[in-house]
Design a protein around this nucleic acid. Structure first.
Lengths: 258, 258
DNA sequence: CATCTAGTTTCACTCAATGAAACTTAGATT
DNA sequence: AATCTAAGTTTCATTGAGTGAAACTAGATG
């Protein structure tokens, strides 16, 4: 029976998933890009028929995962998302625990401070406190960024479990335009130094210094980053900053349960 | 299993919903009570067969809505929940906008300050800052509470659109043990005073003062509450507090877009 | 080793999810 | 008003996706 025609509908990867649920979740994920959407647009985005989407939306709304603006008829995320995330953070959420320490660091350095975690082959900014200087990096919380550029990316790879770090590099998942050996050397150096830097890697004009945060069981929990306009990140300054960032990251780690 | 007479499977209300999705969402909602669960327990909670739950969990995990602790095998909420809620809060989220004002109020009164919104016939504590006195109310963010007891509940009903307030009271949705006319009078008084109080209504030993927060378009957005041990809430003190709570609530409202 | 309990996979049956199409608005355009 | 167009909603026949019993595996516990 398995031998029969394999259709491979873009989501067939061995796992036996529930199609209707997959679709519903994909609908929810539309709202990571847009904060509110009309039904038709959602249908287009996920490539499903109106009626199907309509039924899905009804269900999602019924359970409070979506709600619709009563005047515009557009859908947006509902209370339940809120509620769930609040419960998620109850126990030892780095984003909450590290916030005070991040604010301290921001105050001493005067630059925007961000906290990233790895999720699959991406990273997410789970917390940020903004610099209060006139010229500053603006760093919204919750965004997903690629894992191959930026100081914190390199930290998240360099200090991951060795197996994972290897797999992440060696495989052809490495994007084109990156020299494997050069990258490997870079990671080695980062491991020796205990911190990573980036100069205009992802965004032109932006620079960053990042250090790993290890939880009490010694596992990499997050990457702490200080970032700002490249002009304010001279080699001398970076040297000073890196020490402080590492220090903060260590202190944070000591507050994170294994 | 299913007796013919007593069906009422909690989903038969005229709406045409997708069953598989309903079930998946119900599984997610398990995590509002427990922060991590093993598969079997989830299956019990939602009343579904192991294999069904197994497939659902696989799907939810695949899309990052759940993740499993690699050592304990237990499931917990995943990154995507986080990510979604972060996007939800992007635009004018009261919980974020009101926080500074809430902290100020906490500092002047020295009591725990909470912010509630109505969701259907319940209310959710969307933000809280804790008193720093030795004896204080502990108010976790994200919890759901009933709409019929507590100062903030009464505010959320009294200042809702009249139609809604009526429907919420007159219908037989009113829990037993509450006198309709007495309750109505109470609401009228609250509307006149501009604030509500509660003494040991929900929790023995706890008292609260609450005032409505109206957004710029004049609609009720939230209820701001100060709460603490009943002993610290004498009539005199309440009189002072209520003025300050109303003042804070007004200031908050002026920062909330319509 | 036998005996649990928790998780995973298989498979035949069938009911629930689906999409085309019809229908209902609501807003523009004439 | 009459007519068009786009967005949302409901209906319904078809069928394959989702289901649950049961078999199976892996770990613990006695």
């Amino acid at each position: 029976m398995d031998q029969s025609s394999r259709v491979a509908k873009a989501s067939e990867d061995g796992k036996s998933n529930v199609r209707a649920v997959e679709r519903a979740l994909d609908i929810l994920l539309c709202f990571t890009t847009d904060s509110d959407l009309p039904m038709t647009e959602i249908a287009e985005k996920v490539g499903l028929h109106k009626s199907t989407v309509h039924r899905m939306l009804a269900t999602l709304e019924d359970r409070g995962f979506l709600e619709r603006d009563r005047s515009s008829e557009r859908y947006r995320l509902g209370m339940r998302i809120w509620e769930l995330s609040a419960h998620r953070s109850r126990s030892g959420d780095p984003a909450v625990i590290c916030l005070p320490e991040m604010e301290k660091l921001r105050d001493t350095l005067g630059e925007t401070v961000s906290l990233y975690v790895r999720d699959g082959s991406e990273r997410i900014r789970i917390q940020a406190v903004q610099s209060n200087q006139a010229i500053r990096r603006v760093a919204p919380v919750g965004v997903r960024l690629p894992l191959y550029v930026g100081a914190s990316s390199k930290v998240l790879i360099a200090f991951a479990e060795p197996s994972l770090a290897e797999q992440m590099m060696s495989s052809e998942s490495l994007p084109p335009g990156i020299d494997p050996q050069g990258f490997r050397d870079q990671l080695d150096e980062i491991r020796r130094n205990g911190y990573a830097t980036s100069l205009e890697e992802r965004e032109p004009g932006a620079a960053a210094v990042s250090a790993p945060v290890f939880d009490l069981s010694g596992r990499l929990a997050a990457a702490l980053s200080v970032s700002g306009p490249a002009g304010r990140f001279t080699p001398d300054i970076i040297r000073e900053q890196s020490a402080l960032v590492i220090q903060s990251a260590t202190r944070m780690g000591s507050m994170l349960p294994g």
